[in-house]
Write a protein that binds this DNA or RNA. Sequence first.
DNA 1: TCGAACCATCACATACATGTGAGGGTCAAC
DNA 2: GTTGACCCTCACATGTATGTGATGGTTCGA
Lengths: 132, 132
Amino acid sequence: MRIGELAERTGTPRRLLRYYEEQELIMPTRCANGYRDYDERFVDRVVQIRGLLDAGLPTRIIKQILPCLDKPRVIHFKDATPEMLATLEGELDRMNHRIACLTRNRDAIEEYLEVVRQDKAPEPAAQSPGGR
Amino acid sequence: MRIGELAERTGTPRRLLRYYEEQELIMPTRCANGYRDYDERFVDRVVQIRGLLDAGLPTRIIKQILPCLDKPRVIHFKDATPEMLATLEGELDRMNHRIACLTRNRDAIEEYLEVVRQDKAPEPAAQSPGGR
DNA sequence: TCGAACCATCACATACATGTGAGGGTCAAC
DNA sequence: GTTGACCCTCACATGTATGTGATGGTTCGA
């Protein structure tokens, strides 16, 4: 598929698809006329990239972890230098921190919303301060 | 405490503490001489801010959710306009997406690391391709 | 054959978090 | 009273992910 279709199917501006390519996150082939030609697999991949970017990972890191996640991963064993593994472990750590932080705050927001809704919804009886 | 101590205790450049204040994420009082005066509570708060920033939330959003998380939260009930609640729900959603994405990728990295380690560590017997 | 709808590259602009430094005040210790 | 370690307020610079537009090639249907 060409860039327009991929853009539409992933909800991503063309500009960014080209940017991700420049950052070597995705490497589409080219048609004879120079147009980018994207494989079906790129749909998922782009969505994954966007998710990781949104979660705070820079392209530099995403570029490193992406190849490790492809499923027939035997191919990538030889790339696994010690430094590379160390980087991955470091990122694993940061991701765990992020997950913990997000989860903590999400739970807190959820609780807040529940409490506020309880305070607004029920029949107007005796209520603690702040009630409507 | 003054800015230097807070910076050291949170591992945050002074520059950023002033920036967070400019963005109205933290509002220290001032001493007579104009120095910022930080309460003990700011230590946790700054750490929380940094965690959320690292997880991809912009200061604009952090500013909105922070006050909802303070524990004697009765004070903040009146701020809960419908638009505000909608925003919060939206952010809750995005945070859930982020958490899901991070968790998925973390698990995949973890699995990858396990497989690679298994491939490198054990006694050199018959092994699948890619072995050392 | 023309126009619309794609595609290409290039370049400049923006928002946001952050770095860095200049120019100057405060204060405690010597 | 001078020095050094703080603090202040600017203000300009950087990196990263984005927005936007100029300029031009390709394809295809009217």
